[in-house]
Design a protein around this nucleic acid. Structure first.
Length: 591
RNA sequence: GCGCCCUUAGCUCAACCGGAUAGAGCACCUGCCUUCUAAGCAGGGGGUUGCAGGUUCGAGUCCUGCAGGGCGCGCCA
């Protein structure tokens, strides 16, 4: 049984007072004060109540505070302005709250899942034969973080890399190889032996040939038809093409895995669009029977409009007129496949560029029409913002080359590595340890700078800012965490008395911050916006740093005070560690 | 043409169901390493929240209109 945040507990108490006064309970909602100089918490319900009760809000506030005044948990209750109820708690109450919640594994954070529900998070969206670039950073970071948040909320969260391995680009590459190497067995329809085990090309060849093939198709319609035909033949199961395509798949998966590994991002599911190909005919039959799938201009479509719509929604194209499928088809089939494969799926969350919003509306609508969502399946698209250049305009793949994903990570690592020498703090460590620290610091910088903005906002690509170490950054938070670790390690030799926490003016702000975690997580989970969590971690780090600068901890002579402060350090570390782990950030031992 | 998103300090961004004096970081200025890690701390300057109306006791937040920017709209993914 979790206790909820301190503000939630107060809401119960104050809500009761409102109810006793014949007013709605919700009006007793208590939140952290906007004016910490005046109070710790505030309740704004009296203003809203004045309409219902037809009474002066200050009068209502007065009634409420009078009935609350008997409760010894309140150190101070004041009415301000038009009717704000300002609340300050006794230190004892805060201490008790911290003592009881901080011992818990979840530190007061609620469980959100009911029995064993599964949530699939679909992110990264890398494609075959296209090197991962700067544009993949966001979905990788956000998707991984969302998965961790959903998992901590209590769900069985599974990440699906969902590779783009089945569309026209496949036909473009296949036809390009066929033009260049017609002698390869993949193109000999009479070939009956075993195709080569290893690809006659490597990943570098592949990522070079794709843009060339794609470019050729743009210029020459006949060339495009070749590619389209090859795509359709692959999707129909052409043996040689399939063997060739498997080489692309293998090389591309290795590439993607190397990149995501470098970011410490994992996937439970390594599927792609192609994995549902075998299901498409049965889905098509089924949907035709239900009159969901309709013939139109030689293609087969699903009409996804609804009478209540105010805008036009184009249909989802299931089969193109040449018989090939689209990514709408495979996305729909993937939902079908997942529902068959996993029990008790509550949600699928797609972390994909917001420009795909219309596409997901179509797919989600088509799922409804197909009856896939009737058991309460919740389909969500987290559309993250566009990557812009320093001029504020979108980075364009054609003209300006996007920086490569691996290059970016390497640059960030090198920058962090240089900083270690500069700071001269880890001089006694081995080169290997320094590399490890650099990697953690670099990841903290990249991830935190990305996650601390709202996902849907466009953002400007600026490596210097993304990998800076000072101020509101990941490394700053790591630094505070490392300082606490260092303190706690030294403290072990000193004493291990169990003393009660006793807070005072110097550490009260830190203690109060610790009580906010359940609400911060709640907000983060409900909005699936990690930036609230980032904010909290930063506030904790900053508040700790103030406390650290102001107070003696190990050097404090009074045992009771020293132990209390050490305990606060311990709680702070535990909470920072949780927040950072939810953000996908590891804490080094030194820095 | 239709639809979606954005506009907050010089720059990059926050602001939970509408709450009090709109907050951070960077950059700039001033202090602080003889207490435990200065990747730090304390302090300062910097705002008509794009514009105009409206709703409300109260609007950066909700509604309407306008301006500027971005994006998307049947067989690319």
């Amino acid at each position: 049984m979790t206790m909820g945040s301190l503000a939630k507990q107060l809401s119960l108490i104050v809500g009761q007072a409102f109810e006793d006064a014949g007013l709605p309970v919700e009006l007793g909602d208590v939140r952290v004060s906007d004016r910490p100089d005046l109070a710790q918490f505030q309740c704004n319900g009296a203003m809203a109540a004045s309409k219902i009760a037809r009474k002066n809000p200050r009068e209502i506030a007065n009634d409420i505070t009078q009935s609350l005044a008997e409760n010894p948990v309140f150190a101070k209750l004041e009415i301000a302005g038009p009717g704000f109820i300002n609340i300050t708690m006794t230190d004892e109450y805060i201490q008790n709250y911290i003592a009881s919640t901080m011992q818990e594994e979840r530190m007061g954070v609620a469980q959100y899942a009911q029995s064993n529900q599964t949530v699939i998070v679909d992110y990264v969206g890398a494609n075959i034969a296209k090197a991962m670039h700067a544009g993949h950073i966001r979905p990788t970071i956000i998707g991984d973080c969302v998965k961790r948040i959903v998992r901590f909320a209590g769900f069985n969260a599974l990440g699906d890399v969902h590779i783009g391995d089945w569309g026209l680009p496949m036909g473009q590459i296949i036809s390009e190889f066929e033009l260049r190497h017609p002698e390869w067995p993949y193109f000999d329809d009479d070939f009956s032996g075993d195709y080569p085990k290893d690809a006659p090309f490597d990943y570098a060849d592949l990522e070079k040939i794709y843009p060339e093939a794609s470019g050729a198709c743009k210029e020459d319609e006949a060339r495009l038809i070749l590619a389209q035909t090859a795509t359709a033949k692959l999707q129909e199961g052409h043996k040689g093409y399939t063997a060739l395509w498997k080489h692309f798949l293998k090389l591309s998966k290795d590439h993607i895995k190397a990149n995501t590994d470098a970011m410490n991002v994992e996937f439970e599911i390594w599927k792609g669009e192609s994995d549902v190909n075998y299901l498409i005919p049965e889905i098509a039959e089924n949907l035709k029977d239900k009159s969901v799938l309709l013939e139109s201009d030689g293609a087969y479509i699903i009409d996804v409009t609804d009478k209540a719509d105010k805008k036009e929604l184009p249909p989802l194209i299931f089969y193109k007129s040449n018989g090939a499928v689209t990514y709408g088809t495979t996305d729909l089939a993937t939902i079908y496949d997942r529902l068959k494969t996993y029990d008790n799926i509550a949600r699928m969350i797609y972390v994909v560029d917001k420009r795909q919003n219309l596409h997901f509306q179509q797919v989600f609508r088509a799922s409804e029409k197909s009856g896939y969502t009737k058991d309460g399946l919740d389909l969500v698209h987290i559309g993250f913002g566009t990557l812009n250049g320093q001029d504020g305009k979108p980075f364009k793949t054609r003209s300006g080359e996007l920086p490569r994903f691996d290059q970016l990570i390497q640059d960030a690592n090198e920058k962090a590595r240089a900083r270690i020498d500069e700071a001269n703090l880890a001089a006694d460590l081995s080169e290997e340890d320094k590399q490890d620290i650099a990697k953690k610091v670099a990841m903290a910088a990249l991830k935190f700078s990305d996650l601390s903005n709202q996902p849907h906002m466009d953002y400007i690509f600026d490596l210097d800012r993304m990998s800076s170490f000072e101020g509101k950054t990941g490394p700053y938070i790591l630094y505070q965490a490392v300082r606490i670790q260092s303190l706690l390690a030294k403290a072990q030799d000193i004493t291990k008395q169990t003393t009660a926490l006793s807070i005072n003016n110097d550490d009260r702000p830190l203690a109060l911050l610790l009580t906010q975690l359940p609400d911060v997580f709640d907000l983060t989970y409900r909005s699936l916006s990690p930036h609230y969590l980032c904010d909290h971690a930063y506030n904790l780090a900053q508040e700790f740093s103030r406390f650290y600068a102001k107070c003696h901890i190990l050097s404090e002579e009074d045992d009771a005070i020293r132990n209390s402060r050490l305990m606060l350090c311990q709680h702070t570390y535990k909470q920072l560690d949780l927040c950072l782990s939810l953000l996908g950030i590891d804490i080094p031992e030194k820095m």
